[in-house]
Amino acid sequence: MKKILSLLIFVSSLFFSGQSQADNLLMARTRLSFPEAMLKLQDSIHEQGYTVSRIQRVDIGLTKSGYRTDKYRVVFFGEAKLVKRLSNDYPQLIPYLPFKIAIFAEGEETLLIASNPHELTRNVYPELESTMQKVEKDMLAIFKSMRDDE
């Protein structure tokens, strides 16, 4: 009986293992056109207290090399003190800094994608929990603001 019970618990833990994949890959679709969505994204990032450090125009490089593509950018952002602290004290996070959001046109609409930075540190650096929970909350707020586009 005990065996069956623990098996059941094990199996259900496979199916209901807390965080779902969907929470770790943030995605949003907006009815805004690409240029409008770009502006709104930058506003949303500022509103959450971050600085946009750079915008990589992926589409330009592709087009110059002769490939066809719709508008595609990667927006880098961060907060100076946070990026400094994370990169000094947690060098394993360096390749993931500054944070970024990929944004691209799909027909008349625009899609946004980011990985949830909190996912990188969860269960690895418990002392970063509250810091990274805040980053997660801010990212979710940015994505929510992009979705609520009516």
Binding site: V58, G61, T69, P91, I94
Partner: peptide, 25 residues
């Protein structure tokens, strides 16, 4: 850009890996 073009055809969300980078510290 050729690799990138192929990658975007596999999944348009690969922008998250872009651009390739190494960091020297």
């Amino acid at each position: 850009f050729q690799l990138l073009n192929d990658a975007l055809a596999v999944d348009p969300r690969v922008g998250l890996f872009l651009p390739c980078r190494v960091t020297v510290v």
